[in-house]
């Protein structure tokens, strides 16, 4: 089925109506399973002890923070190159969700860092580049709020999003390019994961749960954005219809 089939917002809203309950159900099941494994079956780390449980929310939040920005970058291409009508709706709806996941990643990383590293924060390349990602999200949200016309705002935000996408490889490879306090990749790496399977499975289940949560929230936020644009269009139409009458009623003869 072509992506253009969902260029029509009404058709897209109908699709959301159908798949949203299923996604919500899967998301709840995935979280229940993931949290059960995290707290009742996953072993403590031989060095970190129970503090490793923070990893099961920190790592998926960090992955989602980057995935969300990647989706925004693809949506931005959709806005600028293919002019897909829902592309800027998708990008705008994703920004607050991405900011929230990035915030979660920063806070949980910080709370893990204090007992493990002895500090809440260091200005190393990984932490700093993720902070830049968070600031990028906030900047994009501000940009969308600054411009009244959603189409103009969408184009400006798309350009800024694509420029900001340069930060994604910097985040990913920062632990390899520079000496950082943050440990190197231990799951998505050449040669396979270095984490024990008993920890890897709960981590993947939690990652699936976070991903489903993202899609649930993204679809709901996209639906809201479409409705917001309908309200705006209707208000503009009503104002345009009312204006000639008002002008006629208030017109004064020139002196």
């Amino acid at each position: 089925m072509a992506i253009w089939d969902y260029a029509n917002p009404t058709r897209f809203l109908r699709l959301v109506q159908i798949i949203l309950p299923w996604l919500i159900g899967l998301c709840v099941i995935a979280f229940a399973a993931g949290l059960y494994m995290t707290f009742f079956t996953a072993p403590d780390d031989y060095q970190q002890g129970a503090t490793v449980k923070i990893m099961y929310i920190h790592v998926p939040a960090a992955w989602l923070a980057m995935m969300c920005y990647s989706i925004m970058a693809i949506s931005s291409l959709g806005t600028l190159v293919w002019k897909h009508p829902l592309a800027d709706v998708s990008a705008k709806a994703a920004a607050p969700i991405g900011a929230a996941f990035t915030f979660m990643s920063l806070v949980t990383g910080s709370l893990w860092g204090k007992p493990m590293w002895g500090t809440y924060w260091v200005w190393d390349a990984r932490l700093t580049s993720v902070l830049v990602l968070f600031i990028m999200y906030l900047g994009l949200i501000a940009l969308w709020r600054t411009m009244e016309d959603p189409i103009k705002a969408g184009k400006a935000a798309a350009i800024l999003t694509l420029v900001g996408a340069l930060n994604l490889p910097i985040i990913k490879f920062s632990v390899e390019w520079w000496n950082t306090l943050h440990q190197p990749a231990s799951v998505m790496r050449m040669g396979g994961p270095t984490i024990a399977t008993s920890m890897l499975i709960p981590l993947f289940v939690m990652a699936i749960a976070f991903t489903l949560l993202f899609f649930v929230l993204h679809l709901m936020a996209m639906r809201n954005e479409i409705l917001r644009r309908r309200v705006r269009a209707m208000r503009l139409k009503a104002a345009a219809t009312a204006r000639p009458a008002t002008v006629t009623a208030t017109a004064q003869p020139a002196e």
Partner: peptide, 17 residues
Amino acid sequence: KGDTGQTGPKTSEAAKA
């Protein structure tokens, strides 16, 4: 008209409506 399912508009105007 929107319900008839227009596909592939080349502008972002459809998202406005």
